[in-house]
Nucleic acid binder design. Structure first.
Lengths: 193, 193
DNA sequence: ATTTGATGTGTACACTTGTTCACTAATGTG
DNA sequence: CACATTAGTGAACAAGTGTACACATCAAAT
């Protein structure tokens, strides 16, 4: 799994990886692959599971660092960007998998995103923010937020990891996106959509 | 190019296609490939160009059908969904390319999206909607709109083309996303972001 | 200390892959 | 018509591919 991730990190697309290629990168003979996975799709699914862990770690850190802050959004985006950098290959894999060729991986990632959105909704409910929104509308908002952040991933991962200027731009832009969405959510239904 | 698109339409990922595979699907001998393209990346770039045409056709139709409508957003989303269905393979290619393995294709698609967003901004300016927004903020809004629609593509393309119920759900959801964004844009800056 | 289960190895086979080269068929322009 | 360009062909090659099978290694449990 580490080998596959490393290749993705080097710019390859997961869908174009072969068993031999992965085992070569892992420094192991091709047949060893079958001790752990039935095929590449299987490997992909297990990567999705690990991706889940990465996302949960990120959520935990976001919750801890954000509670006593008045700049909720800016702070959260910062944490997201930091994690995306620290686990570049994982997030690369995630971005690829969303339109990947394995239906199962695709569904897995989508499901992680749904989970993330629902956790976000819970947090907002707990913090009594967006209290005027119905449950369904809050879910809608959180879904939109998560999508927007996920799309920013594409921007983020396409610039060099040490191009701090561009990364800063992306962070600012993403922050404004989210602010606009929350302004929309704040006036939702009150001025009749 | 048609052959490559056909394979993508059948569920394959563009990054995993080989020259022989494409020529086989095209009913032509492998060597013929080189008469038209230097390699698969080249083919991808030419597909991006054609994708540009598809998008422009879609924009033209949207402009024509939407001017005399009071449900701008709903109508536009409808046209988008219709085009995505009618050119499924093209949009599949677009969704894949955003996180694809060819940097050039990636940049090409991103550039098409920027163009699309700027055209949308022009239209809104011309229609005197969102007149209170600065040029920069209008661009921001349109970028967010285009991203949101592009992400919906992922949802749309992952359900069967004739599952009308799910497609309807996606259309409604996308419409609400855009409505929320425009509510946000409507109150932008006026209540201090 | 011996058995066991998991992991890794080496060899082998039948295909598929990208690319080359010299050749032929078709096409449209003077 | 003749000619030049473009598109398609067939054989060939070295290299890479997925997968199968019998065998080796080694840590942990008995």
């Amino acid at each position: 799994m580490g080998a596959a991730l490393a290749l993705v990190g080097k710019g390859r697309h997961f869908a174009s990886l072969g068993i031999r290629e992965v085992t070569r990168q892992a420094g192991v003979v091709p047949t060893s692959f079958y001790r752990h996975f039935r095929n590449m799709d299987d490997l992909g699914l297990q990567l999705v599971d690990e991706l889940g862990l990465v996302l949960r770690r990120m959520m935990r850190e976001a919750r801890a660092n954000v509670l006593q802050s008045d700049k909720l959004i800016e702070e959260s985006v910062g944490i997201f960007v930091a994690h995306a950098q620290a686990n570049r290959s994982f997030f690369l894999f995630m971005a690829q998998g969303l339109a990947g060729e394995s239906r199962a991986v695709q569904e897995g990632i989508r499901s992680e995103m749904r989970f993330f959105a629902s956790e976000l909704a819970n947090d907002l409910r707990r913090l009594r923010l967006m209290d005027h929104l119905s449950d369904a509308d809050l879910d809608l908002t959180c879904d939109l937020v998560v999508r927007t952040v996920a799309f920013s991933l594409t921007d983020l991962l396409s610039v060099s990891p040490d191009d701090d200027y561009q990364i800063g731009q992306i962070r600012k832009r993403t922050t404004r996106f989210l602010q606009m969405i929350f302004v929309g959510a704040g006036h939702w239904q009150s001025d009749g959509a």
